[in-house]
Design a binder for these strands. Structure first.
Lengths: 194, 194
DNA sequence: CCTCCGCATGTTAGTCACTACCAAGTCGGT
DNA sequence: ACCGACTTGGTAGTGACTAACATGCGGAGG
């Protein structure tokens, strides 16, 4: 069997990665992010500190894993080109949020979001990842030329989505995230936004 | 003279602060942010590392000093209440940018902006300071009750302003910053935004 | 079944941002 | 001239992160 490649090795790797992250988020929530050292996380997960750094380049990455970027960029690229920029981006964001929250790990996502809100270092890096997402969206929209309009539109849409994310975490996920994002977009851009 | 309080002591303090920051921005620009240690900055400024930390709590604060927050929040609070949220916030941002760039230290501001763009750590903290600015704007707009709409509108406006800041730095300040902000706002919210 | 290659992990030593804790000098007013 | 507040410097420590090298297990081939 030459192509059963994703075998035990990759499996094990993914397992330890998940284990480390789960223990990290739990400890951060219980004791606080700053009060928890990477060594604590490693001990709880039953590995050495080095192993933690091999799987997660920085302590912040234990909380921030970006599943959003490719997903949203792909949806934006697939949107019909005839619509205004804000509508194309906005709909793509609502759709990708639909996919994200349907994955089952909603509680875990909420816990991570709460950490991002309350911890300055995590909040800052999370906002920077939104900036990277903005670039990805712009690249998907206009692969060249003057991107000023696209940059502004994408940034504004993502800021609105960020407000929706914060509210979603505050409400402990009671309201559906896509609905919240749509509400934030209409709040910022008017009733014709979507 | 009991009330000549802002005397030599405060003067000296402000002087060393400016000296340290000037050397820091120069060294960061010349050698790169990560390749420059706080000890390097201290030595260049002729002080001990301790003194640097007393004036600037973190290395990032050597570049990021937020003169924007109170200024913009005050302008937002002063805006007429009859207008839509985006217009009130947008005009306040354009006005405060007008004040900021008129202060004479435009080259220094540009150098700091370029550092913020190119250095991930600085970019992240800068975006987080925009998030704090967003909160200040919302507080100035709606002191209580449901702030969801204000949050979304303020965040979107600030994201548009951020795009304008990036472009301004790229253009080396050739275009007037208030004009760029206005352009970004109309790009995101349509021609009726302002 | 044995062997060799590669990958995941561990250990050590080091850099650097940052933080008390304590000592010294200096400016301000009495 | 003296005293209190402020500014600075030195020392020792914590914790995130890196580089270099050693180990041990999984997965191929003979």
């Amino acid at each position: 069997m030459p192509d059963q490649h994703p075998t035990l090795r990759a499996q094990r790797r993914a397992d330890t990665q998940r284990t480390i992250q789960a223990h990290a988020v739990r400890l951060f929530t219980e004791r606080g992010y700053d009060a928890t050292t990477v060594a604590d996380v490693a001990e709880a997960a039953g590995v050495s500190p080095m192993t933690v750094y091999r799987h997660f380049p920085t302590k912040e990455d234990l909380v921030l894993v970006d599943q959003h970027r490719e997903l949203a960029a792909e949806r934006v690229a697939a949107a019909p080109a005839g619509q205004p920029l804000v509508r194309r981006i906005g709909r793509a964001l609502v759709e990708s949020a639909d996919v994200l929250t349907g994955d089952g790990d909603e509680r875990f996502l909420l816990a991570r979001l709460r950490l991002m809100i309350s911890t300055p270092a995590l909040r800052a890096k999370h906002l920077d990842s939104h900036y990277a997402l903005q670039q990805a969206i712009v690249d998907a929209l206009e692969p060249g030329g003057d991107t000023f309009h696209a940059q502004a539109a994408a940034g504004a849409c993502l800021a609105a989505m960020h407000t929706a994310l914060m509210r979603w975490a505050e409400d402990d996920g009671r309201t559906a995230l896509p609905d919240l994002i749509a509400e934030a977009l209409t709040a910022a851009f008017g009733p014709d936004a979507l």
